[in-house]
């Protein structure tokens, strides 16, 4: 086995436990794991942003989430976002390797970090965030779908993209007041369904809310997003 982050050989510690346990070993070496920062401590109950000493908080929510929830159109659309990692330099590097360089194998390392969180959720369907056909061709794969497949789950393709423009090139204002970029692909009745959206990163929460609102409109009971990093 080799570390998916830096390619050094992973030393396998052979113990009685490792001989009999079915568990897979870690996919990143100790050094790479140490460079990643797990989100811990007090976090925003809606979006997982660490609150710490941040004065901009109220009722266990960060200011960004307060603004979303104060807005009538968006209040309660996304029930919760769970992120696993802080978006630090190394996390940024790994996500870039995965998404922009197109190193699909890195998905497995991220999936191993998401697995535990997914296990704590009850859900009926796991839905990927779709890419435009141009972007899909450019990257060769959809990072959200890659994460779901690497978690060993079946993606439910309920959404498609209407038109394209790179999210990362837009300001927060642009993203929040963006017209809907997704559409429901099949007129399925989602009433009472609990849905998990999976993506690589939660930045402003705009993309995930635009996806969530369509699912809610189709009857979904809850929509929770599970993301690798909180940007």
């Amino acid at each position: 086995m080799f570390c998916l982050g830096c390619g050094t050989e992973l030393k396998k510690v052979v113990s009685w436990h490792s001989l009999f346990a079915k568990e897979e070993g870690p996919l990143l070496c100790q050094e790479c794991l140490e460079k990643l920062e797990l989100i811990s401590g007090e976090v925003c109950r809606l979006c997982s942003r660490p609150l710490g000493q941040n004065p901009y908080q109220q009722d266990g929510m960060c200011l960004d989430c307060l603004r979303w929830e104060e807005n009538e159109a968006w209040s309660g659309v996304l029930d919760r976002n769970i992120s696993v990692l802080m978006y630090n330099d190394y996390c940024k590097e790994l996500i870039a390797l995965f998404k922009y360089r197109g190193d699909y194998a890195v998905a497995a390392a991220f999936a191993s970090l998401l697995k535990h969180q997914l296990g704590t959720l009850t859900y009926d369907l796991i839905v990927p965030v779709p890419l435009s056909p141009e972007r899909l061709y450019e990257r060769g794969f959809n990072q959200s779908e890659a994460l779901i497949l690497s978690l060993g789950k079946e993606p439910a393709h309920l959404l498609a993209r209407k038109h394209s423009e790179k999210q990362s090139k837009k300001s927060r204002h642009d993203r929040i007041h963006l017209p809907q970029v997704f559409q429901i692909t099949q007129q399925t009745n989602l009433s009472g369904k609990q849905i998990v959206l999976i993506d690589d990163i939660y930045t402003t929460g705009s993309t995930l809310r635009h996806a969530a609102i369509l699912l809610k409109e189709a009857g979904a009971k809850t929509v929770i997003s599970l993301t690798v990093a909180r940007g």
Binding site: D103, Y137, G140, F141, L149
Partner: peptide, 20 residues
Amino acid sequence: AAFPCARCGEKECLYCRQCI
């Protein structure tokens, strides 16, 4: 490593990680 490739449609499209 291999991946389901949107460009060629193969389920297992092999790619080189060394020079990615």
